[in-house]
Amino acid sequence: MAETSAPRSFQEVILRLQTYWAEKGCAILQPYDMEVGAGTFHPATTLRSLGSRPWTAAYVQPSRRPTDGRYGENPNRLQHYYQYQVIIKPSPPDLQDLYLGSLEAIGIDMALHDIRFVEDDWESPTLGAAGLGWEVWCDGMEVSQFTYFQQVAGHDCRPVSGELTYGLERLAMYVLGIEHVMDMPFNDPAAPIPLTYGDVFRQTEREYSRFNFDQADTEILLRHFDDAERECASILAAEAVDPKMGEANVMAHPAYDQCIKASHVFNLLDARGVISVTERQAYIGRVRALAKMCADAFLSTEAGGGMEEGAA
């Protein structure tokens, strides 16, 4: 196996994962074009894990966690980072083996390393989602989250999706033997213009850390949250039948975009420290309510399996 040689750059780790999962039959999607906190928020996971239709996809998702910003100084923490996400419905019986194969593909030799599946049940209160699975350890370090979805947006998952989430920076740093994320080669170190992760992201980490913690206008954000919430509800309140087309056309995805927006605005407000402990629960509940509404709507669409015969 030629591929088990060590990759030389961050992007090579990503490319190998893309190639591997493409070979395993996944649709290789591109990142969702909105600010999200994790790959799970991509509608390719949240919405497509609902309903009965088979689905298989893999993609990189840039993810934002405003509270994790450290101005580019911390060796491991970033407010913007990449997740690699694989979602397969129904979860195949050999998902663990497929996953281990992906680690080999990025150069982790199973004979030399200690791979462990350690209990970690996953829950997303904002999405009303829960699953059972593990965090996967490689030599004591968590390299992935492995989850069998049981519930998403308040709906039981039937069939169950298997979800794999790789924290790309951390995984790549381990594979490449890098101590500080900013030192990690982004492209091939032998390239004519070699770039490190820091060359690409140090500037933005600094800027966004300041913005997230000190500058983001909380009044505007609070308004954005309310707007997104209202827009989401009004999109879904529209008549199911599109008067122009004369047939059903429920706008689950545009509504879900508003749910994503509300969730990110909430994360920013949280980073600004203007949300008290009790308010926190209320905001999370409001986002969850939006996710639930969008899920209900999606399940009534064709892609959600709602137009099939016998669908409720």
Partner: peptide
């Protein structure tokens, strides 16, 4: 003391180094 689940050909050197790294962080 860490307990691995595998006998590695390098005597566990790689595994130990990885664990040591995580511990330091």
């Amino acid at each position: 003391v860490t307990v691995a689940n595998i006998v590695a050909p390098d005597g566990g050197e790689t595994i130990l180094a990885g664990n040591q790294r995580v511990l330091a962080a």
